[in-house]
């Protein structure tokens, strides 16, 4: 079993928490992993990405080679396209649809929709809307995390102990709403 995924977003959006939770689930499943992340200057509102590789055998490179990623998992729709060269021809894009606009030349929504439409395999998720329905707009990232589960071969429960580790200090309610968000994202993705 091998799964290479790129996580993308904008500095401050919290993609490192998503990668933490996937790595945690991978360890519990007896998988090896490597996860390369970005620190320092780029974290200040710039484009950030994380290369995440899961495998049941040894993983050499910390970076995913071009055309090899099974999945681009993005918390921001424009950022998907920065990493498209990594996606394998039969790979899938899963992204939140809410744009994060902090640059003057951000594409018009029609342009961006056109780019998204031409992707052969994609799951576009109104993560913010789903999070609001659940009752906490801050769990949008967790919805996206849940949507990655079918592609990674995980059940939604796979992230439960990781969520305990990450959010346990903030109380049972926060853990519970994040678990609900994982399941909501999972259901959206499973339908595809």
């Amino acid at each position: 079993m091998k799964r290479d995924l790129i996580l993308s977003g904008v500095g401050g959006q919290g993609i490192l928490s998503i990668s933490f939770l996937i790595c945690h689930a991978a360890l519990e499943h007896g998988l090896r992993f490597k996860q390369a992340e970005v620190h320092g200057m780029a974290q200040r509102g710039g484009a950030v990405q994380s290369h995440l590789r899961l495998s049941d055998t040894i993983i050499h490179s910390d970076l995913i080679p071009s055309g090899q990623a099974h999945l681009i998992l993005s918390v921001e729709p424009l950022e998907v396209f920065r990493y498209l060269p990594y996606l394998r021809p039969d790979g899938i894009v899963i992204t939140a649809t809410e744009p994060f606009i902090n640059i003057p030349n951000y594409p018009e929504s029609a342009t961006l929709d056109g780019w998204l439409n031409q992707l052969p395999r994609k799951i576009l998720i109104d993560a913010k809307g789903i999070a609001q329905q659940i009752g906490n707009p801050r769990v949008a990232n967790t919805v996206i995390l849940g949507a990655s589960a079918p592609t990674l071969g995980f059940e939604p429960g796979a992230f439960d102990t990781g969520l305990d580790v990450l959010f346990g200090k903030k109380g049972d309610k926060i853990v519970a709403v994040n678990r609900e968000a994982v399941r909501a994202g999972y259901e959206v993705a499973r339908g595809h």
Partner: peptide, 27 residues
């Protein structure tokens, strides 16, 4: 390394748009 050893580099199947840069900025 693949190129240096004469191996091809796998490509994605989709055309890649010209994505505007998102440089870091003051918070």
């Amino acid at each position: 390394v693949r190129r240096s050893m004469g191996l091809s580099v796998p490509q994605t199947g989709v055309s890649i748009p010209d994505v505007p840069g998102r440089p870091p900025a003051l918070c």
